[in-house]
């Protein structure tokens, strides 16, 4: 994740060509290759979790259906809205940075982080209600999965927000623009991965029965 200062010339012709009309037709992986391997590794861990949940449910259908009814569907849906909106804000931030609208990009990144904060607040309210009702990891198989899966995902939301905070500071300093947006795209891709995982998690754990 290197950053190029705004005052430095960018002799890299490939980067200049990437902004030429019709450049969209040339296949291009946004951000650094390394972040995509990292995203892939994260997705595989979540895949194992989701598949384990689904097959555990197949053996305890009644228990899963009964326990699922105690979950706060509104909180789950609200958190989905917060994550997809947070993701959208970060897309707008990257688009703004690419056209050198640094101040606008900074604002969209802050808005994306605000959505992350909203997600955490909803999650904490949801957890305190569950823990207050005496529910724990050892209550039953469903709650073991519900708590561990959502907690593991929440850790990723927090990491995503740390990444957004770093990107926000660097964007404000003018590190990203039409000359260089690799690190910004990499961080954004991670943030979208957190959204993608929740898009599977929400129907699976909160709604499907």
């Amino acid at each position: 994740m290197t950053s190029v200062k705004t005052d430095l010339p960018t002799p890299d012709l490939a980067k200049t060509e990437a902004h030429a009309p019709g450049a969209l037709l040339t296949p291009r992986l946004p951000g650094d290759l390394a972040i995509w391997f990292f995203i892939l590794a994260e997705l595989l861990v979540f895949a194992v979790f989701f598949i384990a949940y689904a097959f555990a449910r197949a053996r305890h259908v009644a228990q899963f259906n009964e326990s699922q009814l105690t979950l706060d569907l509104n909180a789950g849906a609200l958190n989905t809205v917060l994550l997809i909106t947070g993701s959208w804000f970060v897309v707008l931030a990257v688009q703004a940075a690419k056209r050198d609208a640094t101040r606008i990009a900074t604002r969209w990144l802050a808005a994306g982080m605000a959505c992350g904060f909203g997600f955490l607040i909803v999650k904490i309210i949801e957890y305190s209600a569950k823990f207050g009702a005496g529910i724990s990891l050892s209550t039953n198989t469903f709650y073991m999965f519900y708590i561990s899966l959502t907690f593991f995902h929440m850790m990723h939301v927090i990491l995503g927000m740390v990444i957004l905070a770093v990107l926000l500071v660097k964007t404000r300093q003018g590190a990203y623009g039409s000359h260089d947006h690799h690190a910004l795209e990499s961080g954004a891709a991670y943030w979208h991965m957190v959204d993608l995982v929740w898009i599977v998690l929400f129907p699976l754990v909160y709604v499907m029965r």
Binding site: L25, H192, D195
Partner: peptide
């Protein structure tokens, strides 16, 4: 559209 993989390598 968010991860921008629509025009990424197959």
């Amino acid at each position: 559209d968010f991860m921008e993989l629509r025009h990424a390598p197959t």
